Amino acid sequence: MPTKSSTQTLKVASWNINSVRARAEIVERFLTEHQPDVLCLQETKVVNDSFPEGLFRRLGYNHMMLNGQRMHHGVAIISKLPMRDEDRLDWQANGEARHIGVRLENGLRIENVYVPAGGDEPDRSVNPKFGQKLDFIQRMIDWSGRLDGSTLLLGDFNVAPLECDVWSHKQLLNVVSHTPVEVELLTALQNSHNWVDLGRRFVPAPERLYTWWSYRALDWAKSDRGRRLDHMWMSPDVATAAVGHQVIEGARSWTRPSDHAPLITEFAF
Rank of each mutant, 00 (worst) to 15 (best):
S5P: 04
S6H: 03
A13I: 03
S14G: 00
I17W: 07
A24Q: 11
T32A: 06
Q35V: 14
D37H: 05
C40V: 06
Q42P: 15
Q42R: 11
E43L: 13
V47C: 11
F51A: 09
R57M: 08
R57D: 10
G60K: 14
L66K: 09
L66I: 09
N67L: 08
R70D: 14
R70T: 15
M71F: 14
H72D: 13
G74M: 01
A76M: 06
I78T: 03
D85H: 01
D85W: 03
R88Q: 09
Q92F: 15
N94V: 12
N94L: 12
G95V: 07
G101M: 09
L104C: 01
N106M: 10
G107Y: 04
R109Y: 02
Y114R: 06
V115T: 07
E121W: 08
R124F: 12
S125R: 15
F130G: 01
G131I: 10
K133A: 06
L134W: 14
Q138H: 09
W143A: 07
S144T: 00
D148F: 14
D156A: 10
V159F: 11
L162K: 11
E163R: 13
C164H: 07
C164Q: 01
C164Y: 02
D165I: 03
W167M: 06
S168P: 03
H169E: 10
L172T: 00
S177Y: 11
P180V: 05
P180K: 01
L185N: 12
L186E: 07
L186I: 09
A188V: 15
A188E: 15
S192Y: 03
L198H: 05
P204V: 08
R208S: 05
Y210L: 01
L218A: 15
D219F: 00
A221G: 09
A221R: 11
S223A: 07
R225T: 02
R225W: 06
R225V: 02
L229V: 02
D237Q: 14
A239E: 01
A241Q: 13
V243H: 08
V243E: 07
H245R: 11
H245E: 07
E249I: 00
R252H: 14
R252I: 11
S253D: 15
D259L: 08
A261Q: 03
P262Q: 05
F269W: 04
F269T: 01
